[in-house]
Amino acid sequence: MPLTLKKIITYVLLLLVIFIAIFPAIWMLSTSIKPVTELYDNPPEIIPDGPTLANYANVLSRSVMLQSFGNSVVITAAVVVLTLLLTSLAGYGLARYTFRGSKTLSLAFLFGQMVPSVVLVIPLYFMFNKFGLLDTKFGLIIADLSMTLPMGIVMLTSFFKTVPEELEEAAMIDGTTELEALFRVVMPIAKPGLISVAIYTFIHAWEEFLFALNLTLSASQRTLPIAISTFAGEFTVDWGATMAASTVVALPVLAIFLLCNKYFIQGLSDGAVKG
């Protein structure tokens, strides 16, 4: 096959697959700026004749949406901070020390990634009910940790192993404690690893659906994904507003991903696939 033909076929296939990958996002944006009169046009158009922000105004003027947005921000931020803190400590312990059961513990953390969240949600419902954590942000935060901690620990253990031990040893000879050395010497060097854990955790917590659906009940504790889901249910016909709301949820994730995509791909391949 001549090279030019091969090139043409390659690029055509790649453009086709990229079209498939991003078309839903484009269609979401397109629908979100369509006035109601254009939603049901035949043939449908990607760029509307009279683009409008009315759908966004509609969505953002609902107090429920704003409150959910706030809840999602608080919960996601707390999950990211707690995950980074706890996984740094555990990852460091496992990367630098061996102890009785350390192999088993690493394996258990790896296994933790595999536990289906639907299996956990029923007992969590009863436990949270008993401890007064049901329908609270705090409850949702620690429930989310069940999914984010195992993967974070696995990723950071392999990352910390790449940081030379001599650096901390030198710092400790100068009189710093081991914990200080971890925070001041090791963590800055392992920044790419911490960033990938943070992004992974952010995306996970931001889109978490099953726990939020069953462990929160009242509108005041609802997160954005649940608000969107009930929103779509209430106004099944108002696709413009639903897509505007979806765009609001998607934008922070897309923005963070575009800013940090380098770390992201590397970290995931280290954490998930290499094991």
């Binding site: 990958a21 996002a25 979401m28 889109e207 994904p225 779509a232 998607a250 897309l254 995509n261 992201f264």
Partner: peptide
């Protein structure tokens, strides 16, 4: 190509 993967599942399914 990563767009579908980073788009939250709830959003992907609504679209």
């Amino acid at each position: 190509l990563m767009v579908p993967w980073v788009l939250p599942s709830i959003i992907g399914s609504s679209v």
